[in-house]
Amino acid sequence: MQLLGNPARREQGFRLLVNTYGDRLYQHIRRMVHTHEDTDDVLQNTMVKVFRSIDRCRGLSQLYTWLYRIATNESLTFLERQKRQRTLFADSTENNFPEARAAEVELDGEHIRQRLDQAIATLPPKQKAVFSMRYFEEKSYQEMAGIFTTSVGALKASYHHAVKKIESYLSLD
């Protein structure tokens, strides 16, 4: 944070931030948008916003929450735009998604990931984000409430619905 606060060393601080949190943010975004290309675009936009508005972040303790909030909002915005375009051009890329990814799957671990990825793709955008943070990143509801700026009760309800849908999808195998 000291590096980021110093204009002369801001670039150095930013590179350190990308290397420290980039991988976790990549995983989080990819669970929501599903392909590497889309994840790359959303993550780059996230990092641009982070660099431009780093002065708004107050202290290291809030940095992680702040980064996740920007990444989540960027992902949700991307999904909304994608949904509008899909409606406009009547092109359901979501339906093509399992076939497009099938060639990548070889190992058991990847098979599990692919099935979960397909199941998550059926969720509404906000449920995707809530499920991803709770199930994969094991965040507490309290921490998630800071990221989503919503109540713990609403997050629990959202996660509960997501679990039901995904379990139902996985049981179709």
Binding site: V18, G22, G109, I112
Partner: peptide
């Protein structure tokens, strides 16, 4: 807790920065 992560391409984060 058993779902593997996606592997990032080599040098990806430096290029991203």
């Amino acid at each position: 807790g058993k779902v593997p992560k996606w592997e990032l391409p080599s040098g990806y984060l430096d290029q991203l920065a």
